[in-house]
Amino acid sequence: MWPGRFEAENVHEIDITVKFLVIVNESPWGSDLALAANRFVGAALESGVEVAAVFFREDGVYNALQGENCDPGTPDLTEAWGALAAQSGTRLLMCSSSRARRFREQSSPAFIESGLTDMMELMIGCDRVISF
């Protein structure tokens, strides 16, 4: 099971040898799961945990849709994900078929079009898969 301890209250206690794949299924506005995923990945990276990639599927691909107005005080998750990827080099992969079913607009350049085969191969190669 876990090679080290995991405490939800304190992400710094995650064993740094564990490699994560994070899957985001929700849009920035449908629930707070996408925001939680962003904060989780940021905290994990900050504490030295390797995040192999963040894979956006289903409504999660809306996280890549840039140019949407955000209410004051609400985070712009497209920008937040882009900044996180720029700082850490973590890949942001977006399911191309989920995207094709949802929007045609230009997505943020921080997001790379990918497919479910990549997601499955990443799943096999990672120690833990966390789905939001």
């Binding site: 599927r57 289903e58 078929s97 989920s98 079913r101 949802r102 479910l116 085969t117 997601m119 499955m120």
Partner: peptide
């Protein structure tokens, strides 16, 4: 869901 077969697609890839 938005796509009727999105879960089936994951199963097929696996």
């Amino acid at each position: 869901q938005r796509s009727a077969r999105s879960q089936l697609d994951v199963a097929l890839v696996a």
